[in-house]
Write a protein that binds this DNA or RNA. Structure first.
Lengths: 392, 392
DNA sequence: GGCAATATATTTAGCTTGTATCTAAATTAC
DNA sequence: GTAATTTAGATACAAGCTAAATATATTGCC
């Protein structure tokens, strides 16, 4: 502890401005009287704070509404509204093969989106960054947003990321990418890039606009070729020492199942063994589900095995973390609905504290939604330190 | 959000007083100049804060030391010291069969200790409370501490306890006990009782004065008849929705091992199968270790199985939480040292992020140490709200 | 013993942010 | 047009902090 930031009178203004801004952000429009009731401040202080926020560009004063049949007595209140276009945020989903960028205003409404693919898995970092940058610029253009007014960029990658946004160095590939991406986007556009694990962002997204809204103890399983968990406890993301919390690739070994890519491996086994009525095509989860729906015994058996596997994984999470809810997301989510009854029925056999299990409604957007939320969290936490660029 | 506590000028004093008090608590003695450097406040403010803390009884001003050969130039600084006897805390370990109470001063030095046993497992709550209360009073008497000056009581029980200190209602027995204990001690002595899960307290203790000092991502396994984990992530205890985080009784099922009491079960199997050279006596972990040390093959095989079992459990924790360190505590800890090399060697087979594994040095005191720490945390967080009773 | 040097303590004036209270302004209802 | 109502703004003052000037207690040197 070299210098534990003394609390000066300015701290009060910061705290109170944050509280006022938080409320205005959540409401359509707010009046001084409302803010007094909410913050406990006097009118004088509330007005002073609002003037302050207006001069900083975070809120705007609205005109009086043209009396829509609900006449209010007394002097009309000044109406303060959050300036949702004070700036923008970017949310990136950077996968192994593709990348997606979403632009959102400060309320989180996505107003632009664009994707790009990597030519190959082993392209140089510079080219990778170029693809990501292009997706960002295209998304911004689609949104009609000036790149200079991007306040933060949330980016999800399929690798462990620690609390400080550093990629675990054991993963050479991602490590190089990390360093390049952050400094490149900083240099090209001046953006602050917040790296996070994709499953962690999925958890943020799910709690924000998915099936876990308002759930403080939430786990999101991002299941596809890889199996990652985003764990929130008491509303906070868990990272662990090196950011590898939720990296369950190895969990199979603990359970003695074998291969480390779980569901995809089971599907491949099934396909290799001849598959069902739809045999012949490439192995895919939707095919299994389709065949099972058609009554194919082999496909049904696979579904049973997958259900039990998922139940065991969820149960081990339940024993260690005791979440209120587990959300299944990622590539398998669209088909996973059919598995829910089976999983739910099995859970009590494996854990004393079975969570509610649901399927993500966010589809492909689960990581970008979380990335947007992550960037917004940063902007909201640092609102009073950020200098807003003048609107175009 | 009915009323989000406005930040008034008084808040500044609270914040600064907390910072000053925190430093004085950690140091032997502090001067104004030191506190200025540390907090960033001016001398005038530091002195004002100290005067305030003196009047509240939290710190005392010491006389000048009688120059022990190190002469200091200039006007001698006023010397402020933490008043470690401003009050006391109690730390309780309430087990199924016995209970232990420890009294500590506000620096955490234990100055009194006492234990008691329950006559039977099914005695009425009132009798149970009586045993606990007696242990508390005896410990206080041994410490020469006035029960009226106990500022908080930390209590560990072998049941899930949620963030608010409520016992999970599915556990009827503990639930009744909970309500009775808290209100009884409040009524008898006016004490504030902070209930926590025993494994969670073990984690607090281990991070405070055990083998995990300074480790923010720490898991403590409290292993004996029961297996519980206390999980700290980023320096915070994990509870989960109902406080059942770390309740791993069921984890065995997930792994397909079978019985839920792990090590103890293995030892019993061994004993039932004839045991080693020390055969005949009751099954016990120390016997297995002694026989293994004597070269007995059956005992060695059991140790191998136990090691692998522990490694699998630790690996599943590592995959989900990624702790920096896992500490083995509880009844098996005294013998567990011999298992460490085996466990450590196995871990990389089961997880990509193996934690450091150590054995607790705290022995029986692991839970009471954590209970004391828990009570101190409460006192430190609420120092400026607590009215200190006048010293005897 | 007296005096400079040094480090700390205390005092005074002023800034920021808050509260409390009084007066002014803008609107509706009659 | 006037009263009632609600919000805005202004004025006085309190808490807490900073900054700068002044006072105090000690060491070290002559």
């Amino acid at each position: 502890m070299p210098h534990a930031a003394a609390a000066t009178p300015q701290l009060l203004r910061r705290v109170n401005a944050q509280a006022v801004l938080r409320h205005i952000r959540g409401a359509e429009v707010a009046t001084g009287t409302e803010l007094m009731a909410l913050t406990g401040l006097t009118r004088a202080s509330v007005i002073a704070v609002c003037e302050d926020l207006i001069s900083r560009g975070w809120i705007v004063e609205q005109d009086q509404p043209t009396d829509p049949g609900n006449p209010r007595k007394g002097r009309p209140a000044r109406r303060f509204a959050f300036n949702r276009e004070a700036g923008f945020v970017l949310g990136l989903d950077i996968g192994a093969a593709t990348t997606t960028a979403a632009v959102a205003d400060l309320r989180g409404t996505v107003i632009g989106r664009s994707s790009g693919s990597f030519r190959a898995a082993d392209i140089p970092a510079q080219e990778r960054i170029g693809v990501v940058d292009l997706a960002c610029r295209q998304a911004l253009e689609a949104a009609g947003a000036d790149p200079g007014r991007v306040l933060a960029v949330g980016a999800g990658i399929a690798a462990p990321v620690d609390r400080d946004g550093n990629v675990l160095v054991t993963q050479r590939f991602w490590s190089l990418f990390d360093v390049g991406l952050r400094s490149a986007l900083k240099e090209l556009h001046g953006w602050t890039v917040l790296l996070e694990n994709d499953a962690n962002l999925a958890a943020l997204g799910e709690r924000w606009r998915g099936s876990g809204v308002g759930v403080d103890d939430l786990v999101v399983l991002l299941a596809g070729e890889r199996l990652g968990a985003g764990v929130m406890e008491s509303g906070r993301l868990l990272h662990g020492r090196g950011g590898a919390a939720g990296e369950m690739g190895y969990l199979d070994m603990v359970e003695g199942v074998g291969s480390s890519d779980g569901i995809a491996a089971l599907v491949r086994q099934w396909s290799a063994a001849g598959g069902g009525p739809s045999a012949g095509g490439p192995a895919s989860a939707p095919r299994v589900f389709a065949d099972a729906a058609a009554g194919d015994a082999a496909a049904l058996a696979i579904l049973d095995r997958i259900s039990e596997r998922m139940a065991r994984v969820i149960a081990s999470i339940a024993s260690l973390i005791n979440p209120e809810q587990v959300v299944i997301g990622g590539a398998v989510a669209e088909s996973a609905g059919a598995l829910l009854p089976g999983i739910t029925a099995l859970l009590p056999r494996f854990t004393a504290t079975p969570p509610r299990v649901t399927v993500s409604p966010l589809g492909d957007a689960i990581v970008t939604a979380g990335a947007v939320r992550h960037a917004l969290d940063y902007v909201e936490a640092h609102a009073l330190e950020l200098a807003l660029p003048a609107p175009a």
